[in-house]
Design a binder for these strands. Structure first.
Lengths: 212, 212
DNA sequence: CGCCTGTTGCACAGCACTGTGCAAATAGGG
DNA sequence: CCCTATTTGCACAGTGCTGTGCAACAGGCG
């Protein structure tokens, strides 16, 4: 069918190191390139890998197969780290902490992948225009830190990012039917306060009070 | 230039209700449609709005202008809500709680927008394959709830979503230089534990202990 | 009724990308 | 050095989308 040897299937005879190296390099470069632009064309990827487009098709039948391989690699590594982090640990809190630490090692490698995967044109525009809001939120956080109301190892701007993403997480949760939409607002408020270091009981009480 | 009247510019004489209604409907439908697929074509949007592609171009010069209008509307509404929520409130914790609650009202309307904006093909694949990991994490959370180690208004599965997104937030923060990459892992662990209701001091101590 | 705004339907040029075929180069191992 | 797996370069068909031009048409307003 294809004009090139299968490449990834049976390699009966001796040498094939160059091909393997190319395949590897294509994958690595593709990761970096798809980061920068999730819609990067096969040509962009090939050129970045110092190879001709046709060669990429020699290793992966189509775009989807390439990306799929990429995602598989990342997820596999991440799963392993997560599992290793919590194996044999009794205390749930410690298990969570360990697996987060373990995952982060790799997450750091795939950081750009995930972070930029959600950098859709749409998302980009939203986040950009939302900057003023984020800054206002940061200011409130800063004030809270000053008064000792909040406590976190994160600087206020980073905590603002966290808050923003927590809202996103809650939206997903509601979309997936995990949380009742009417409850979600209060849950979000409590969880966000808690993440900022406000004792869970205080946060719950405060939010409950506001709902009169 | 265009074969159609400007449509959105000066409307000197009397009637224009139908055009306005169309414009409105196109925007509304576009919101819904771009949710389902951020790469929805102008034709898809037009058809969904019960209108011909050419008509859409009568209201918006190009795709970007349409999306831009959409995002502007959403962001403007959100900003207003956020500001209104915290105006005149002294206590930072209350300010945060109020603005979150206020934002949620609208977020609920744009929930799909934001949630699905990050539903890139890439993201989709990642989240899908990450499901097993998320489930394992949920299990640990559930155990923690049982032992009273964790506390949250959110059910374990939703909390798992939150944890996942918090990692994403931290990755973004690192990418943007807000947090040192070497610190980020520990910060992530502490923040995630804290969000799960573990007292900030305990979380910090636990994570510090793990770093020996 | 006739006008004017907005809508429709169709057609077209242009563009970018995908996946494939083929023949000619190339390079590393044996 | 020769052989073979691999890569290259080019060409091509197919697809789908964008933005625009134009002519016909609809319906409310005066």
């Amino acid at each position: 069918m294809a004009g090139m040897p299968t490449g990834h299937s049976g390699r009966a005879p001796g040498h094939s190191s160059r091909a393997d190296a190319n395949r590897r390099r294509i994958l690595d470069v593709a990761l970096a390139e798809l980061l920068r632009d999730p819609d990067a064309s096969m040509d962009q990827i090939a050129r970045a890998a110092g190879v001709v487009r046709r060669t990429v098709y020699g290793h992966f039948p189509n775009r989807e197969a390439l990306i799929s391989t990429l995602v598989d690699e990342a997820v596999q590594a991440l799963s392993a780290a997560h599992a290793a982090g919590r194996e044999g640990v009794q205390d749930p809190a410690e298990a969570v902490a360990r697996s987060v630490l373990a995952v982060w090692e790799l997450a750091d490698r795939y950081r750009l992948l995930i972070a930029l995967a959600q950098r859709t044109v749409t998302m980009q525009g939203i986040r950009e225009r939302l900057a003023p809001v984020r800054e206002a939120a940061t200011e409130v956080l800063r004030r809270g830190f000053g008064q000792g109301v909040f406590s976190s190892p994160l600087p206020p701007p980073a905590l603002a990012y966290v808050h923003e993403q927590m809202l996103v997480a809650l939206m997903e949760a509601v979309n997936d039917g995990l949380v009742d939409a009417r409850e979600a607002g209060r849950c979000a408020a409590v969880t966000i306060l808690t993440a900022a270091g406000v004792p869970a009981s205080d946060a719950t009480a405060l939010v409950a009070k506001l709902n009169d």
